[in-house]
Nucleic acid binder design. Structure first.
Lengths: 205, 205
DNA sequence: AAATTTAATTAAACAGTGTTTAAAAAAGCA
DNA sequence: TGCTTTTTTAAACACTGTTTAATTAAATTT
């Protein structure tokens, strides 16, 4: 079946061609200003072809956001060398925030925009496996901290969510430009300063 | 000058007519699906008229988000009866989160969407006074806590931002539907549970 | 090799969007 | 009443996501 193999291959190639064009335009102009026609122009096909590979625009951006989780996971891999669970937890926070600040559009897509998550709910497999995988890792580390005697009197699930919320809150206020309320002298460094304060709190509780 | 007084009045009336129509449609269908033509239909005028009262769509939603801050501030007014700064801080958190959960679309507009903040940057008076006013109140309370000896070793600005980030993180993950990662048994109550955990932490540091 | 079937691709249309412009209608003033 | 100013509208522009039927290209069969 050599022919259908090649056809399969060509289909995959065009699909990833669409995806890379979409990613390029998305990082240049944002999700709203990246149109199906823009993507089609970029790959020199007609707009209609895209609907043979993706159900709708949301599915394209869901596929893109998967790539973002892959990238974040890769950055998290250095944590395997950090034995101490509390140290690992802090390092996770630093990596998470660094990823968000360095890739604001991708972070936005992964954790703020409605497009990819809407696609999850619209499709048959209605669980957000990308997010769940990442949160599992956080929960595991928090549980390890609890086992080692840290965070006494706390439960893993709410505490994990609290920690996630804290770092997500900081970067999403930054990305969505709500940090103007911060005094000018602290504005540029507020996320780093607050993360330091957060680490100090984690040591104390 | 009775006539120009009436004209002034009529202008204001039409402006707030546009605004209330916009608000109604926005709460029904969201910002993206509320079109200028929808608003014009609702008030039984032609679409063009709207541009005599607002520069663009963003300005309309900036005006709406101001109303949201007014509503939030009103809810915060009960705090004047809470003397103890740490108790007031916690109550602020509860009110903030309650407001967000009960008015998700308005909260979204105020703290997540780019429309109102884009208008702030596009217009001449480029400071976000609505957000600044609210944050000032938080900072004041945190400072009072510091004066009373709480949160030793922390600075007001980073700590205030950290606290804001924590509550904003929780509700924005909820509003933007990223809470699916939470175990089913905790999912419905995760924000409340995490807020409780946060209060416990605030007591300890 | 030619005819037929299947798959890939496109052009065109639909129903919408925010915004601008020039024309028309209404209101105010002399 | 005639003139001027203000208010309002119709129409156009350049887009948008998506669906449909028609067309082109490729693969298979005769």
């Amino acid at each position: 079946m050599g022919i259908s193999d090649r056809k399969e291959r060509e289909k995959e190639e065009l699909k990833s061609l669409i995806l890379s064009a979409a990613k390029k335009l998305f990082l240049q102009k944002g999700i709203e200003k990246t149109s199906i026609r823009n993507i089609a122009d970029q790959i020199e096909y007609s707009p209609g072809i895209i609907y043979h590979y993706f159900r709708d625009k949301n599915e394209i951006f869901h596929a893109l956001h998967q790539g973002g989780f892959q990238a974040l996971m890769n950055k998290m891999m250095v944590l395997e060398n950090v034995r101490h669970p509390l140290e690992r937890l802090k390092a996770m926070g630093s990596i998470y925030i660094r990823f968000a600040i360095e890739n604001p559009d991708m972070y936005d897509l992964m954790f703020i925009k409605e497009a990819p998550i809407d696609h999850v709910y619209d499709s048959e497999h209605d669980d957000w496996k990308e997010g769940s995988g990442t949160f599992d890792y956080l929960r595991l580390t928090v549980k390890e901290c609890l086992e080692k005697g840290y965070f006494q009197g706390h439960q893993a699930e709410p505490l994990s969510f609290l920690i996630w919320s804290t770092v997500h809150g900081m970067v999403s206020l930054h990305i969505r430009k709500r940090c103007e309320v911060i005094q000018l002298e602290d504005r540029a460094t507020i996320v780093d300063q607050s993360l330091e304060a957060f680490f100090k709190i984690l040591d104390k509780i």
